[in-house]
């Protein structure tokens, strides 16, 4: 777990735990997380592979600018997970191609 438990300036109030699925495996995140932050908290940084270079992909900007964090969420490809809110039961999958339209 990579969550900050104590901080000299900030407080992170306890939030509801949300269960979601990453490539079929159940993981837990917190209410208020984005998909990317929940994955990071669970130690997942490789979000997929680029469709052309096949190199591993993680996010770079975390605020929806760089489009480096595209994943398949509930069957929809090319979702920018750094700005997509985590929801209970979400099915999140690595994207290694250009994405197949549902």
């Amino acid at each position: 777990m990579n969550r900050i438990e104590h901080h000299p300036i900030l407080t992170f109030p306890e939030k509801r735990t949300l269960t979601f699925y990453f490539d079929g495996k159940a993981l837990s995140g917190k209410e208020g997380d984005t998909i990317a932050s929940a994955l990071h908290a669970a130690g997942v940084r490789v979000l997929g592979h680029h469709f052309k270079s096949h190199r591993p992909r993680g996010f770079y900007c975390a605020i929806g600018n760089c489009s480096s964090c595209l994943m398949v969420v509930n069957g929809v490809p090319n979702v920018r997970v750094c700005v997509e809110q985590l929801e209970e039961g979400m099915d999140v999958r690595s994207q290694n191609d250009k994405g197949v339209l549902p």
């Binding site: 680029h50 469709f51 052309k52 270079s53 190199r55 992909r57 770079y60 760089c66 489009s67 480096s68």
Partner: peptide, 11 residues
């Protein structure tokens, strides 16, 4: 090493 990536979207 492989050349650095300039455009992440298009590789």
């Amino acid at each position: 090493l492989e050349s650095p990536i300039v455009c992440r979207c298009e590789g």
